[in-house]
């Protein structure tokens, strides 16, 4: 078990390093000059040269990359003389735009993205599982057919369309909720929910549709298994047959998907955050991409990769807990 964990963690480190390298190379190939970006539009050439020197952009690519990776763990001191700047652990560099440390920028916005992701995940899991199970238990009835047609609709409607409709109907037409703006959970839990409920629904709807369809087929398949028949032959009541013997295996597939989806969402939902002007990591990412703010984009890419690979590991460990056959002896 320990050996397995160590192997997995090394794998994760390797994956992250490769992703880091690829992103780094892509930015190196871009025609934009980081020194000019950092210095500003009307920067004189000698100042640009100075900045380039300071940022270590004259060194070979490999050296730059090594410095970047090392800095994440050990921090980094840039520049010389009066321009010296020390960037402490974990150092992802400074934004070209604002000059603020990337780490601080991301950390300031992470709570918003995490709130959005977790809330949306709760909504789509409840909605997806509920619809999926009801559909499976009433297979081929008009309830099932109606729900399944609805899921196709939900999956097909783009996020920005859902967002617009929700905003127009709930905020403008009915005036039930204020226009969403982020409120920290710790300062006002009710306001937190009120402000995030529309983004949650927007983000969750399409995913819930996928989960509903998957849960439906998974439950139908499991209920046809011989062990479910055995549960009935034991004389268990239908609630236990379906709830305990049927549902648990069916949820294994859902747990896998959830790990991946939640992982990728934690580092921001670009479109939804932008649509609702939520100051999350996704919005930061979108803004930084527009302005070729390399350090910020790199930082967020790494963060997103980190969340995805770790949530994958968590799901694999969870697997062993759900399905004893997957346990490593």
């Amino acid at each position: 078990m320990i050996g397995y964990l160590v192997r997995r963690l090394l794998g994760i480190a390797g994956t992250l390093l490769v992703i880091c390298a690829i992103t780094f190379v892509i930015f190196y190939l871009l025609p934009t000059d980081p020194a000019v970006m950092f210095c500003g539009k009307d920067c004189p050439p000698d100042r640009v040269a100075q900045v380039r020197q300071q940022m270590g952009l004259n060194a070979p690519l490999v050296v730059q990359f090594a410095r970047y990776v090392l800095a994440i763990f050990a921090g980094r001191t840039m520049g010389t003389g009066q321009y010296v700047v020390h960037c402490g652990f974990p150092c992802f560099g400074y934004s070209f735009q604002s000059g603020a440390p990337v780490w601080d920028l991301i950390m300031n916005r992470l709570p918003t993205s995490v709130s959005l992701a977790i809330g949306a995940a709760v909504v789509w899991v409840l909605l997806g599982l509920g619809v999926g199970v009801v559909s499976a238990l009433r297979k081929n009835s008009w309830v099932d057919r109606t729900l399944m047609v609805a899921t196709i609709g939900a999956a097909a409607v783009p996020v920005y369309f859902t967002a617009m409709i929700l905003l127009y109907v709930v905020v403008v037409l009915l005036g039930w909720l204020p226009f969403p703006s982020y409120v920290a959970f710790t300062s006002d839990p009710v306001g937190w929910v009120q402000n995030l409920i529309l983004p949650w629904i927007t983000l969750a709807l399409a995913t819930a549709a996928m989960y509903a369809r998957m849960t439906r087929s998974s439950v139908i398949e499991t209920l046809a298994e011989p062990f479910v028949r055995t549960a009935r032959a034991k004389g268990l009541c239908e609630r236990k047959v379906v709830g305990k013997h049927g549902l648990r295996p069916a949820l294994t597939a859902v747990a896998t998907m959830l790990g991946m989806d939640l992982g990728s969402l934690l580092a921001g939902a670009m479109i939804t955050e932008s649509l609702f002007s939520l100051p999350g990591v996704g919005k930061l990412f979108a803004d930084s991409l527009h302005k070729a703010d390399q350090p910020v984009v790199m930082g967020i890419t790494l963060l997103a990769s980190f969340f995805i690979v770790t949530s994958n590991l968590v799901v694999d460990l969870l697997y062993a807990w759900i399905d004893p056959r997957a346990r490593l002896s």
Binding site: F227, T230, A233, K234, D323
Partner: peptide, 17 residues
């Protein structure tokens, strides 16, 4: 309780979890 059944393939008839 009063009538019980033994199925053919116990590997699939018993719950794996």
């Amino acid at each position: 309780r009063r009538m019980a059944m033994i199925f053919q393939d116990a590997l699939t008839a018993l719950h794996p979890y």
